[in-house]
């Protein structure tokens, strides 16, 4: 237990990075997801096809493989480390990869949210002269986002879990810090236990919050 207490500040520092990457990835993922969802709902076959390829590729391969491929694989054919910097590239690439991965799932959440808005709402917007863009912007998306919030909060919890896969590619986070501490203290049981408890506390709180939002939305179904 002493090993845990001695190294708690280090672990919490790792947690800080985990949360930074999570927040950055979630924000980017919502943007990627929205773009992909709108592409998939567009009339253009090309845009539809591109979005479908993106979503299926990122959902049908493991995140760890995506990370290795983009962070290490691409540097084998492109001088990305020179362009972005030896230290910065892995962090930027890993965050974007994580965002692309989560964005593929979020695009389906957003698409379902948009399709869930009653057709009559679009027709009413059209009948007062709104263009497709204005209808989406002022009528459909505000209603869709409301019902998307619970699944998006859940996907955020998933994203925090997924950041633990950044450690194997050498990015400092909670897991990476833990591994360093274990190699110095030889206390795998207590350190991994504490890491698990930290993840559990945060993610359990978030999914409870998502559940609460979902129940509240059921109550005032307007």
């Amino acid at each position: 237990m002493q090993a845990v207490l001695d190294n708690l500040p280090q672990l919490l520092e790792g947690l800080k990075f985990t949360l930074y990457y999570s927040i950055a990835a979630i924000i980017l993922a919502v943007i990627f997801g929205l773009i992909a969802a709108l592409m998939k709902l567009s009339k253009s076959k090309i845009l539809k096809g591109l979005a479908t390829v993106y979503i299926e590729v990122f959902r049908s391969t493991p995140l760890l493989v995506q990370l290795f491929f983009i962070v290490f694989g691409l540097t084998g054919v492109l001088p990305l480390n020179e362009w972005f910097g030896q230290r910065a590239y892995p962090i930027i690439a890993a965050t974007i990869t994580l965002a692309l991965h989560e964005g593929a799932y979020i695009s389906e959440i957003i698409r379902a949210g948009i399709l869930g808005v009653d057709r009559g709402q679009k027709e009413a917007a059209a009948s007062i002269g709104m263009t497709e863009y204005k209808t989406m912007r002022y009528i459909v998306l505000p209603q869709a986002f409301k019902r998307m919030i619970p699944p998006l909060v859940n996907q955020s919890a998933q994203t925090i879990k997924d950041t633990s896969l950044l450690a194997p590619i050498g990015i400092i986070d909670l897991v990476y810090r833990g591994q360093i501490i274990i190699s110095a203290t030889f206390e795998p049981f207590s350190i991994w236990l504490v890491i698990a408890i930290i993840y559990f506390t945060i993610i359990f709180a978030i999914s409870q919050f998502a559940g609460y939002l979902e129940r509240r939305m059921q109550l005032d179904k307007r």
Binding site: E123, A124, A126, S127, I128, G129, R222
Partner: peptide, 17 residues
Amino acid sequence: LRQHVGMCFQQFNLFRH
């Protein structure tokens, strides 16, 4: 053109939000 042609629907379709 639709700006000049008002319409009311059977299900009202007021903007719920």
